[in-house]
Design a protein around this nucleic acid. Structure first.
Length: 227
DNA sequence: AAGGGCGACAACCGCCAACGA
DNA sequence: GTCGTTGGCGGTTGTCGCCCT
């Protein structure tokens, strides 16, 4: 028996969300305790499937999201975590406050991957390409081949931060930084600075009453929603 | 000015795991 | 133990805007 689709495909809207839809979803989620995503579109008056609503909330509407490119330290962290975890974007994103797995995945694919390739580093293995398999014809010096991605991307002062945090062999106990469980392993990461309120939200969203008092956007908010 | 190429990002799809009946 | 439902995840695709010719 085939798996049922997450929602009846008939009559449901797909594609980009309109400001009105965003507002409806946001209004609903701000004013109602979340029961289950399947009911959200129905109760919020949206012609979307619950899954779509969930994604929109997590990737775009959630108040504490950071937008825009990664900072240098975030980028280093992503590279290190990727070296450890592979394409487990949600685990990687969990170490970056305000970033979503979709965000990290997109940034990896559009920026970091290319950057590594250009530097002669295989983004999958995180090791220098062997001369025969190097996709970029740009010559890279011997020195560069010896560098790790972190070495190549950051200054000396920053290297210490990155290398002390999540090198592939650093599932150790040397640091008192924050830790997180990834299945059986413990990943140690440096404490990221609190997400700055650096919103790049559409104007219509910023104009909404709910967003005029930022104190409102606390962690309690999320817990209340049980997300 | 037109349009083709490309990059960036939002959104969808399909699979899987967890959970409850 | 089985089945259905739901949420979560990662891969992929679609769309839009910018840049170059």
């Amino acid at each position: 028996m085939g798996r049922q689709p997450c929602c009846a495909k008939v009559g449901l809207k797909k594609g980009p969300w309109s400001p009105e839809e965003d507002k409806k979803l946001l209004d609903f989620l701000l004013n109602n305790p979340l029961c289950c995503w399947r009911l959200v579109p129905k109760l919020a008056g949206l012609l979307r499937c619950g899954k779509s609503c969930r994604l929109r909330w997590l990737n775009y509407l959630k108040p504490d999201l950071k937008r825009g490119l990664l900072s240098e330290s975030e980028e280093k962290l992503v590279i290190d975590l990727h070296a450890q975890l592979g394409n487990r974007w949600s685990k990687i994103a969990a170490q970056l406050p305000g970033r979503t797995d979709n965000d990290v995945k997109n940034i990896w694919n559009t920026h970091i991957k290319k950057k590594l390739v250009k530097m002669g580093i295989d983004p999958i293995t995180h090791k220098p390409f062997s001369p025969s398999e190097n996709p970029s014809d740009e010559s890279h010096g011997e020195e560069e081949e010896e560098k790790t991605p972190v070495d190549s991307l950051c200054s000396d002062s920053e290297k210490s931060l990155a290398s002390s945090s999540v090198s592939s062999s650093s599932v150790s106990s040397s640091s008192s930084n924050s830790t997180s469980l990834v299945k059986d392993e413990i990943i140690e990461v440096p404490p990221m600075e609190a997400p700055a309120i650096d919103w790049d939200e559409p104007m219509w969203l910023l104009e909404m009453d709910e967003f005029k008092g930022l104190e409102f956007l606390s962690n309690d908010f999320d817990e209340n929603l049980c997300i």
